[in-house]
């Protein structure tokens, strides 16, 4: 395992108002890798999905803590870990299937699909009654060389 070249940890309460803060904070930390606008949006969206899941699913009956760790590696790799100590997921494979949702209303069951298609890797570890850890890996290729001579 290579050592990260930089790391930050954030902790926040599972209040929906913090969704915006979480995605902006993570993308700001990764900004030193000079990502494209598209790559920044990919990271923001994937983080937003994972954090929202902690709020609406993990701590559905109250407020708990969300722990985020972001690590930057040489070569442009960003690893974002989003962890909760909430209810956990009984069947992770099923939860990751497109359109699977345990909540009705306007939930579409596409959160994991968004994370998977916007990141290079998504790892989910979960234990019922203990909580869930989602790890997102994105390889930043960055901007094209500027056109100036």
């Amino acid at each position: 395992m290579t050592k990260p070249k930089n790391e930050v940890k954030l902790q926040m309460e599972s209040r929906s108002v913090n969704e915006g803060y979480a995605r902006v904070a993570v993308s700001a930390f990764a900004a030193v890798l000079d990502p494209t606008v598209e790559e920044i949006n990919d990271i923001r969206t994937a983080v937003s999905e994972a954090v929202t899941n902690c709020i609406v699913h993990a701590y559905r009956n109250g407020v708990g803590k969300i722990y985020i760790r972001v690590r930057l590696f040489d070569g442009g790799k960003v690893e974002i870990q989003i962890r909760d100590r909430g209810c956990g997921i009984a069947d992770v494979k099923k939860a990751r299937e497109p359109l699977f949702t345990t909540l009705g209303g306007d939930r579409s069951g596409l959160g994991f699909s968004v994370m998977e298609s916007f990141c290079d890797r998504v790892r989910v570890r979960s234990a019922v009654g203990k909580g869930t850890t989602v790890t997102l890996v994105k390889n930043i290729k960055g901007r094209d060389e500027p056109c100036e001579p």
Binding site: T45, S48, G111
Partner: peptide, 13 residues
């Protein structure tokens, strides 16, 4: 300026 799967839910609904 930003949209995640909540936007999908909004449009589908």
């Amino acid at each position: 300026t930003f949209m995640d799967s909540s936007g999908i839910g909004l449009v589908m609904g």
